[in-house]
Amino acid sequence: MNDSTASTGTRVLGSITLVGFAALLLFGLVLSPADAAQGELVRMMYVHVPTAFVAFGAFTVTVAASVAYLLRRTEWWDLVAHGSAEIGAVLLAATLVSGMLWGRPTWGVYWTWDARLTTTALLFVLVLGYLAVRRLPLDRDKRAGLAAVVGLLLLPTTIVCHYATTWWRTLHQGPTIARADPQIDGLLLFTLVLGLAVFALLYVWMMVHRFRVLYLEHRVEDLGLDTAIAERRREASGALATPRPATGPVT
């Protein structure tokens, strides 16, 4: 018997993810050397950069799934958009927290109104708005359509925010990996890539589970509706045979 959202596939995936996290801790905290410029603090980058990448990937999935939902109108795309946004929000929160804890000893402040930080904060608020739309007490199809439109609008908004804030302030360092000459030590780069892989695995694993939980939520909603209808029917037919007293507690 299996009374959970797990299957053989997710168990394997989950185990690999767990081993990956153990490896990330080992490499991130013990094996990799301190950076020449940042010292030990570079270790926070192994959480900060991967979560940021995977979170942005997750929101891309949400936007794409929203478009697909508007074209196809299937429950599958709706659930993908929803689940991906939830996990993206969690990962983006991790990005913000790790960034603040890095910023405090490096820049002297937890937060600064730099372009990229501001864009990220705005994106986080936008996603919170999207998830709020997801929790609206509405008819399911209507909520799905509304959420898909809000999800689709995430993309132009993020682009505009990015340009506005880039012009406004820039302090955050540019991407270091994309450059032609690798400026960082081999083991550091390896740990960073390992972090990316581990968080990507985590995303896929959580995504499968969230998808199934959301799917089950819909089924339970349907069941609740079916039972409620059946009960009303029973009441209606039973009322003709044995009328219930109008007042007094039912025992």
Partner: peptide
């Protein structure tokens, strides 16, 4: 128009709209 038909329109509109117009505020 998105939030117009909702029962919670008074609270959801600022949450959705204000981050979107934040670039206008900056510029």
């Amino acid at each position: 128009i998105l939030s117009a038909g909702l029962r919670v329109k008074e609270t959801i509109l600022p949450l959705l709209l204000l981050p979107v117009v934040a670039p206008v505020l900056v510029a």
